[in-house]
Design a protein around this nucleic acid. Structure first.
Length: 429
RNA sequence: GGAGAUGUGGCCGAGCGGUCGAAGGCGGUUGACUCGAAAUCAUCUAAGCGGUGUUGUAGCCGCUUCUAGGGUUCAAAUCCCUACAUCUCCGCCA
């Protein structure tokens, strides 16, 4: 959510952002709603001021028998209906205004390039040597199934398509990757490990921006106001919602491993084979809460924290800066990390690191008290950032494909060996 | 699931129909003392919205907010109802 006052004062800028995002939005309605709102506030507040004054008079009439209390009561009571009507009209308008604001996307950073789609995302940097195979590299499903570490049919049998069963060393490596990533972020990068609920209330999803606009992407429980989380960003960012933090306690760094649940509505036909696009997948997430002054530096650090995972695993990747047409609803600036997949002969997204500035903080009323009262004594909204650190299933894919051998075995990356009980290779038994 | 108690500002905690946006304490601010620090003393210290005003964010006026949503009343933190949460006891359960 953006500051209504800011939007009204910068309508052209906002319209520019919307155009760059290719996002339809009727700013005029917003302006009109606000005008009506102010008008009614003026009327209702005048009436209330009169009412309060009258009530105060009655209160003081105890020691002043000259005042006709009954007449005053009748007079004030008569105003009650008007106030009630105006208040309910106001509530209706404010609800509409709020609904409207909640569907408005975030601003854009000056450093977010203008573009139409993923083809316009500039590459910021590339890391690692792409391995030259002296055989035709296979797709991960053609390697994993014969090894007995992934079972796609069983996933479908138990649930539906886009579910997979990991078995044996496949399941083991998934768990090893989670531990490796969490250890890295907690021990080397200074994050606090968190295990949050995997289900959250609607208001929590509104806080991070998944609701109200993207309900069709989420799994909702039938009998409760609870949804399965699509990412740990949701519970982590909301951890400090509706509170006022002290600047001296910032920045806050959180990391969590959680499964993520996504309906993948609208992605029918894409990545239907393999582990690439699942309804349920594991992810280690990083979230930061910080001051506006530091949030872009924190984004660089956050991104490099995610890159470290790939560097240590020696997986070639590149970093792209998402353009205005590709960036997410709630983000001002996003770096995507794309890992090299030999079978597809291209880079594929494995992490997404975003600075949401105060967009989410406004939605969840997450604020902080600046420590320097001379400069910025007022309570301000914090900035929030999130990034995958990183998607575990896709890391498994990347390892299997990049570390595959001609005989169908998979070498285990050196850094992961200690997490695999010293095992160096996954082979056919 | 059953019974009872509780839910107040950044935090703790009083208040139980009007003069309460709310005592007191902690924390924080500024000043005094000090070479400096600690201690002590004094001072200020809730947020949102609307208006006015300065135009870079002061001040002033008003409205709202004491878990949330309803209700009673001229008037509610205070009374009533509902929901949610916390604590205690019982039941159930991993």
């Amino acid at each position: 959510m953006l500051d209504l006052k800011w939007i009204l004062a910068n309508q052209e800028t906002m319209a520019g952002y919307l155009k760059a995002r290719k996002h339809d939005f009727d700013l005029k309605t917003l302006v009109e709603l606000d005008e009506r709102r102010r008008k009614i506030i003026g009327e209702t507040e005048d009436l209330k001021a009169k009412r309060n004054e009258g009530s105060r008079k009655i209160g003081s009439a105890k020691n002043n028998p000259d005042i006709d209390v009954n007449a005053l009561k009748a007079e004030i009571k008569a105003m009650g209906d008007d106030i009630k009507n105006l208040d309910s009209e106001l509530a209706e308008i404010e609800q509409k205004l709020h609904d409207c604001l909640m569907t408005l996307p975030n601003k854009l950073s000056d450093t977010t390039p203008i573009g139409n789609d993923e083809n316009d995302n500039p590459v910021v940097r590339t890391w690692g040597e792409i391995r030259k195979f002296d055989f035709e590299p296979k797709a991960h499903w053609d390697i994993a199934e014969p090894l007995g570490i992934m079972d796609f049919e069983k996933g479908v049998m138990l649930a539906q398509s886009r579910f997979t069963v990991l078995k044996g060393l496949g399941a083991r490596m998934e768990r090893a990757l989670v531990n490796f990533m969490l250890d890295l972020h907690t021990q080397k990068h200074g994050y606090l490990e968190v295990e949050p609920p995997f289900m959250v209330r609607s208001a929590i999803l509104e806080g991070t921006g998944q609701l109200p606009k993207f309900a069709e992407d989420l799994y909702k429980l039938q009998n409760d106001d609870l949804w399965l989380i699509p990412t740990a960003e949701v519970p982590l960012t909301n951890l400090n919602r509706e509170s006022i933090l002290d600047e001296k306690d910032l920045p806050l760094y959180y990391t969590a491993y959680t499964p993520c649940f996504r309906r993948e509505a609208g992605s029918a036909g894409r990545d239907v084979r393999g582990l690439m696009r699942q309804h349920q997948f594991d992810k280690v997430e990083m979230v930061k809460i910080c001051t506006p002054e530091t949030s872009y530096d924190e984004l660089e650090k956050l991104t490099s924290n995610a890159e470290d995972v790939l560097k240590i695993l020696k997986l070639p990747y590149r970093v792209v800066n998402l353009c205005s047409g590709d960036i997410g609803f709630g983000s001002c600036k996003t770096y995507d990390l794309e890992v090299w997949l030999p079978s597809q002969n291209k880079y594929r997204e494995i992490s997404s690191c975003s600075n949401c500035e105060d967009f989410q903080a406004r939605r969840m009323n997450l604020r902080y008290r600046p420590s320097d009262p001379d400069k910025n004594g007022k309570i301000r909204f914090a900035h929030t950032l999130n990034g995958s650190g990183i998607a575990v299933g896709r890391t498994l894919i990347a390892i299997i494909e990049n570390y595959q051998e001609q005989d169908g075995s998979v070498t285990i990356p050196e850094a992961l060996v200690p997490y695999m009980d010293g095992l160096k290779k996954i082979e056919k038994i």
